[in-house]
């Protein structure tokens, strides 16, 4: 396959960026999107140019490191991560636009790499449980109803890649934050911090400069892990409950 790539190039956080056009040839349809970028970078290095910086780690679709907005879609045209996207999703001769996640809370570090530490700070605000550490407890010691376990697991699938923020026209982190809150709030292990978790994490989300939710549903459409839009509804419910409880105290 022969492709024309238009890639966002930006020297550093302070520099202005622009789209640069590159041609790549000999791309196999079985290559992943990141392997295709590796080919481009080899080409750039050989010609003495600066390679394109992009985030990647496991390349198995489970770590949440890879990003990229491909032709206007976070993680590209398939519902998966960029590393699991294959070149067979494109046609020979295509022009592909590759841009970084765009949000005020995700500043560009270089080229296609953005700083997602805002997500880490949201997790630090309450995305954990205060449980005794040590070896894993006996699974039957704390019974969890099947429906709750399924609900928790569905939200625990979030890998924190930030595609929801990238896709949201408001740069909102509602889907990420709600997935993390719901995952723990429904379980008995998360119950002691049920109220403080939702209040603190939402407050941190706002403090990071993410936008608000207008329920466009773009986040859930872009999510490679299929976190449902209703996740936000559940978080709103938890937030209202916690606010009422805090007022009574």
């Amino acid at each position: 396959m022969k492709l024309t790539l238009r890639v966002w190039r930006q020297k550093n956080a302070d520099a202005d960026g622009a789209m640069s056009t590159y041609e790549v040839d000999g791309i196999s349809p079985d290559m992943s999107f990141l392997e295709m970028l590796d080919v481009l970078n080899e080409q750039l290095i050989l010609s003495g140019e600066e390679p394109v910086a992009f985030d990647h780690d496991c390349r198995e679709g489970i770590c949440g490191a890879c990003s990229l907005v491909i032709n206007g879609d976070a993680h590209g045209p398939e519902r998966t991560t960029t590393c699991q996207l294959h070149m067979r999703s494109f046609k020979d001769g295509d022009t592909i636009d590759i841009e970084p996640w765009r949000a005020a809370a995700f500043p560009v570090v270089k080229d296609l790499v953005v700083d997602r530490s805002a997500f880490d700070r949201i997790i630090q605000a309450g995305g954990y449980i205060t449980a005794p550490t040590g070896s894993a407890p006996e699974a039957h010691a704390t019974p969890v109803p099947k429906a709750d376990a399924d609900f928790a697991f569905e939200h625990a699938e979030c890998i924190g890649c930030g595609a929801c923020v990238a896709a949201c026209p408001n740069g909102a982190a509602m889907l990420f934050t709600s997935a993390k809150i719901n995952h723990l709030n429904v379980l008995p292990q998360g119950a002691p911090e049920r109220e403080t978790r939702v209040l603190d994490m939402v407050a941190q989300m706002d403090a990071e400069g993410f936008g608000g939710c207008t329920l466009t549903g773009e986040c859930a459409t872009a999510c490679p892990k299929g976190i449902p839009l209703m996740s936000i509804t559940s978080m709103n419910k938890e937030w209202l409950r916690a606010t009422r409880k805090a007022a009574k105290r």
Binding site: R6, W8, M19, V69, N71, G72, D73, D97, E99, R102, A103, A104, A105, C168, P169, N170, G171, A172, G209, F210, G211, G212, T214, L215, T216, G217, E218
Partner: peptide, 22 residues
């Protein structure tokens, strides 16, 4: 105002998003 500030730079590759009502 907050939403607009949270997404200061637009994507070069634009796509029609969401329903007309939204």
């Amino acid at each position: 105002r907050r939403d607009i500030e949270a997404r200061p730079s637009k994507y070069v590759h634009k796509k029609p998003r969401a329903t007309y009502a939204t």
